[in-house]
Simulated assay, not measured.
Amino acid sequence: MPDRRAFLGQAAASLAGLYAGPVLAADSGFVPLGQVARAHGLQFGFALDPRRLSDARYAAFVAQQASLVVPENALKWAATHPAPDHYDFGPADTIASFARSHGIAMRGHTFCWHRSLPAWVTQTVTRQNAEAVLVDHIQTVAGHYRGMIHSWDVANEVINLADNLPGGWRDCFWHQMLGPAYVEIAAHAAHQADPGALLCYNDYGLESDSDKAQAKRKAVLAMLQGLKQRGVPIGGLGLQSHLRAGGSDSFGPGLAQFIQEVRGLGLTVLITELDVDDSKLDPATSDGVVAGVYKRYLDLVLGTGAVSAVLTWGVWDTPHYTAATPGQSGPMAQRPLAFGPDGSLKDASWAVEHCLMRARKV
């Protein structure tokens, strides 16, 4: 631990010297979103690619705008634990050092997911040793960042009604090895290793008021209720919030009610992976439409007074897929985030700022 903290301290000092200075024009009238969020008892931030932090403009923009960050991939199993006897914390340490040097909080994502498992796990782990392997991984990773993490996504996307398991559980590797108890096992291991961190369940497909989404909400709520009744230390729900523009909004009062029900369990709600897919829009008018989706969605969820953080899935626009489901084909989203390329302001930037300013405090 002393050696690791010394390394992080040295890296933080070097990063602090490299990345300084505002990116946005001082006379733009735009207040950094992290600053606006803090004034209203909230956090705002981005998912980060640690490789991009060597770009001074990217790093300076994140330092200017964010009060909370999360690694996109650097803390998933395949990245941190590529071999049974080998852990690699280098990329995630880069983000941790940067965040600490700029007074930015950091989330951890994710311990249990049906994707991003290295081959050695699925090829060698059995029902007999699965719990020991899972606990060792979580305690090693969470212990490495003990005291540095705002919140951990203990489990990600464990509900999938199409698999037809009792309770709506996803038929994934950890469920096959340990049954639904794996989430409880993971939460207790994370809490033991990093007791000061908020532990969260994170999922997609909960935002819509469609029949399908409402059925998934019911299953997620029942799972969370069960965890709380058994004393499992889950304190938050992450709503990924991969939204789509180009049709009538599918979110509405049902989402607000669901958020209040989650809050009634004693959990806070975080918007963890926000973006707006514009792939179906006319590029000439897409920015205004995307901004409108941001405004309606954030006004709805922040109006509940139960949302404590908003993070977008990326820092600024680069073409990418926004859907949480694997194997998507077709056109990519071009301008799905709150900021344009290189941190330029666009309609969505102002929409998010105004929504944060109007947010009800948690």
Rank of each mutant, 00 (worst) to 15 (best):
R4E: 06
L15W: 12
A16G: 00
L18S: 08
P22K: 14
P22Y: 11
A26V: 09
A26H: 11
A47H: 10
D49M: 06
P50T: 00
R52E: 14
D55C: 02
R57I: 01
Y58T: 07
S67R: 02
V69P: 04
L75A: 01
A83S: 14
H86C: 08
H86M: 07
Y87Q: 02
D88P: 03
G90E: 12
A99L: 02
A99M: 02
H102N: 11
A105L: 06
F111R: 13
F111N: 11
V121F: 00
Q123M: 03
N129P: 00
A130V: 00
A132L: 06
V135I: 14
A142N: 01
H144F: 04
H144P: 03
R146I: 03
G147Q: 00
H150W: 10
S151N: 02
S151D: 01
I159K: 04
A162T: 11
W169D: 04
C172W: 01
C172R: 06
Y182L: 07
V183T: 13
I185A: 07
I185Q: 10
A189E: 08
A190L: 13
A197D: 08
Y201Q: 04
E207H: 08
S208Y: 02
D211T: 09
A213L: 03
Q214D: 07
A215L: 05
L221E: 08
L224T: 08
G226L: 03
G235H: 05
G236Q: 03
G238R: 04
L239T: 02
S241F: 04
H242N: 11
G254L: 08
I259M: 05
Q260G: 01
T272P: 09
E273W: 12
K280F: 14
L281V: 03
L281N: 08
A284R: 15
V290H: 12
A291S: 10
A291R: 11
G292V: 03
K295E: 15
G305D: 07
G305E: 07
A306D: 06
A323M: 04
A323N: 12
Q328V: 10
G330N: 06
G330F: 06
A338V: 15
S349T: 07
V352S: 14
